[in-house]
């Protein structure tokens, strides 16, 4: 099945060719969780602080379905 993974801020180094406004489209067989997806993309889990699936906060264990969009961030803040 197809899911989209977008990496932000310092995590962009694990997908250096990814354009700023598009995620990586990945074909992965179910069952699939966020942590499995990140490992397949070569992203060390200990670098990831915030995960959103379809615009909601999620954890590493969240199961993914076809068409899901996953956004991953390192620790970030501002304001």
């Amino acid at each position: 099945m197809q899911v989209e993974l977008q990496l932000f801020a310092t995590l962009r180094k694990y997908a250096p060719d990814q354009p700023l406004d598009k995620g990586l489209v990945m074909n992965v067989e179910p069952p699939l969780t966020v942590s499995i997806l990140l490992e397949k993309a070569g992203v060390p889990l200990d670098k990831v602080k915030i995960i959103m699936v379809n615009n909601r906060h999620a954890g590493f264990d969240q199961e993914l379905a076809a068409g899901d969009r996953v956004a991953a961030f390192p620790p970030v803040a501002g304001g």
Binding site: A9, A71, P75, V76, A77, G78, G79
Partner: peptide
Amino acid sequence: ALPAYGTAVLINI
């Protein structure tokens, strides 16, 4: 995060 991207690192999140 703050020195590398500034506070606008928040736009995407």
